[in-house]
Design a protein around this nucleic acid. Sequence first.
DNA 1: GTTCCGTATATAG
DNA 2: CTATATACGGAAC
Length: 154
Amino acid sequence: MPHTLSRDNLTVTITLYHNTIREITLSKARHGLKKAENTIYLLNDIGDYLDGKRVDFLRYSVDLENLTDFQQLVLNKVRQIPYGVTVTYGMLAKDLQTSPRAIGGALSKNPAPIVIPCHRVIGKHDLGGFAWGVMIKKHLLHVEGASIGPDFIA
DNA sequence: GTTCCGTATATAG
DNA sequence: CTATATACGGAAC
């Protein structure tokens, strides 16, 4: 079972066997990963992210097959929201010719929080909802240093 | 500040 | 098909 760590876009993968080093690999290219490697890198990336590092999750693929076409459309749109940026449900609704409530409904089905950054979608007057609790949404936005207005940051 | 509709989508009956 | 529930927004008290 390989272990990985990452610093400044350099990823080190260590494979141990019975307490001896079997292999160490160094990598900078973080695209075109094998599927088996994907999960390892993902844990590492999420760790970096939670440490406040800017991480690009677009290179991961997320299975949205069991969601409706509309939900897939919204979630794929949300993936494009840049790190540290917030948009409102209404802005996305206008963009996709639908209603703010419909946007929220689709986001509530997000199967992969953080990787699909639905926490960057907030209400016009407040933070809006979050399937795993608004406190966590606030935490993630804080990690990113997102500017969500002085009214409702804590 | 509240409360009340309008809206789009999903789900249950 | 109708009714109900929403991670909203805006108008009206």
